[in-house]
Simulated scan of single mutants.
Amino acid sequence: MQGLRGTVRPRPPYPTGSGLWGRPTAVNNVETLAAVPWVLRHGGAAYAKLGAPAETGTKLVCLSQRFRNPGVYEVELVVPLRYLVDALGGGVEPGYRLRCLQVCGPLGGFLSPDELDLPLLGDALADAGVALGHGSLVAVDDRITAHELLRHVWRFAAAESCGACTPCRVGTRRGLELTGDSAGARTVLSRQDDLLEVMATGSLCAFGRGVPTAVRSLVRVYRDELLAGEP
């Protein structure tokens, strides 16, 4: 809108202090604006009764990939992930087994099937090493190998990095290279850990800092498979 290059800028200042044309700017997504008519009609107090005391309201959750009933569902914050996966999503399609659940898209993080009793709450998911974000859930089946999934995450990160800062620009490409490294799995994961620490500390924006969260959660869920055959 201002004719500037579409790239990340250091913060602060934040948009609320200096946004469009240097003026205080409110930034809302479509989901937030869609809730406004209901709040105006029923009142803020009624909306605040939905969800949990610390995280009130509803969330649009997009179920995709191997779900029997894919689609977008509006649910109260605090409902268990298992309700979303089994009751709304209908579980995975016949012939497949749920291997993990990807939360919040490519950089949100991964959970194992035995973690589905976690509530749909930002703090609870953050404690488990994933982000709530925009609320998408992707059912990953057991036919996708750990290495394929890890390479996919790094490929996405390398393709989507805006390149404004070195930790993210170089780090994502180095991470992708590591997925093809011929060294042993333990050695590669150790090198990857060092890389992720640099990205988490030095990246300018949430994208570069979000890659480590996604990769670390994936490694946690798939560690046995990634290290299969290692002494």
Rank of each mutant, 00 (worst) to 15 (best):
A126M: 12
G57S: 06
R97I: 02
N69I: 01
D194E: 12
L4A: 10
R82Y: 07
V72R: 13
V103P: 06
L4K: 13
C162W: 05
S136E: 10
G57F: 00
R151W: 00
S64E: 10
D86G: 00
P106I: 14
A87G: 00
A128R: 11
V198P: 04
A139S: 05
R9T: 05
P13L: 07
V92M: 02
G133Q: 09
C168T: 07
V153T: 15
L111W: 14
A46S: 01
A185Q: 08
R82V: 10
D193V: 05
V130C: 06
L204I: 15
C165E: 04
T179M: 12
V79W: 06
P12A: 08
G229E: 03
G175Q: 11
D142E: 13
M1L: 09
V27S: 04
D142I: 05
G133E: 05
E225I: 01
A185F: 04
V92Q: 06
T25A: 05
S182A: 14
G44M: 04
G171P: 12
D194T: 13
T56W: 11
W38N: 02
A54H: 14
A45Q: 15
L84N: 04
D86K: 00
S18P: 02
T172M: 07
G90M: 03
P119M: 12
G135I: 11
H134P: 12
G184K: 13
Y73H: 15
T179Y: 08
E230C: 01
P13H: 09
D193L: 12
N29D: 02
A200R: 07
T56P: 02
G229R: 05
P37H: 03
R173V: 09
G184E: 09
R11W: 05
G210E: 14
P37A: 03
C165Y: 03
G71R: 01
A164R: 11
V215K: 07
A48W: 06
T213V: 15
Y83S: 00
G17S: 06
P70R: 05
A159M: 11
P13C: 08
P12C: 09
S136R: 10
G19P: 11
D127N: 09
K49L: 11
A185H: 08
A87K: 00
F156A: 08
L137V: 07
P13I: 09
N28A: 04
P119F: 12
R223V: 09
A158R: 14
V211D: 08
L218E: 04
L178W: 09
